[in-house]
Simulated scan of single mutants.
Amino acid sequence: MALRLKGGSIFLHVPKTGGNWVRHVLRKMNLVHSEVGEKHSDFGRTLLALAGRSTPSLMRYVLQMPKRVTLPPDSTYMFAFVRHPLDWYESWFKYQSQDTRRWTKFGDEGRFSAWHPNSVLNELGSSDFNVFVENVLSRRPGYVSELYFSFCSPEIRFVGRHESLRKDLCEALKTGNEKYDEDLIMNESAVGVSAPLSSPLVWDPRVRQRAVRLEYAALVRYGYGKTPA
């Protein structure tokens, strides 16, 4: 679920951006008030959950659409985290390649009631990293950019980066006027780290170049620039 903090802030958990660690730390500091929606509820689904509406079926969702609300600019403070789009592909591959996962399916792309942000990746796995990335780029060009944008709507007040997760979490909580323990955040051990692969990942230069081109929007919007291919 998205997390509502005691000070009123909302944390949106973008998959594979350090969110499990953030959730762990927020709970350890006793900052969590309640859960909102599903674990990986994007911006729109979080708004529905805050309004007390669920989305168990397409028909009910359609009926609720006219009643959906938009948060005023100075209303509920929300924050989320992203990571370098190319690193996201690596992280998802490592996660799904674990013996405990073996390319687990998440949700069902064809069923609205079985929504998961990464359901489009079902059936695209491979033991070869570059084949996996090619599968995603062919099926859903710019997938990571699309994923990030579904969470980080313009109303989101703070978007931190996985590469500076601890520092950015402190900044997010400070900006949201939440009480926090900076020493705990800076020293808490990582959680949910995928098991190492038997061999290091190596990008095919052509696949990497294509990924950079198709993920250009997220690279620029979140300050990663145009990574050389």
Rank of each mutant, 00 (worst) to 15 (best):
K6W: 05
G7H: 04
G8N: 01
F11N: 01
L12R: 03
H13S: 11
T17I: 00
G19A: 09
R27L: 10
K28I: 04
E35T: 12
E35C: 09
D42S: 08
F43W: 15
G44L: 09
G44Q: 10
S54N: 10
T55K: 06
R60W: 08
P66I: 01
T76W: 03
T76S: 06
M78F: 14
F81N: 03
F81L: 06
H84N: 15
E90H: 08
E90S: 13
S91H: 02
W92V: 15
Q98H: 03
T104M: 09
D108N: 15
F112N: 01
F112C: 08
A114T: 09
A114G: 02
V120S: 13
L124S: 07
L124P: 06
S126V: 07
E134S: 15
E134I: 00
V144Y: 05
E146W: 05
F151W: 02
G160N: 09
E163F: 12
L165W: 11
D168R: 07
L169C: 04
A172R: 02
L173H: 09
K174T: 14
T175D: 12
N177C: 11
K179D: 15
Y180L: 14
L184T: 13
M186Y: 04
S189K: 14
A195Y: 08
P196K: 09
S198H: 12
S199M: 06
V202K: 12
L214T: 05
A217C: 03
L219P: 00
V220T: 11
Y222G: 03
K226F: 12
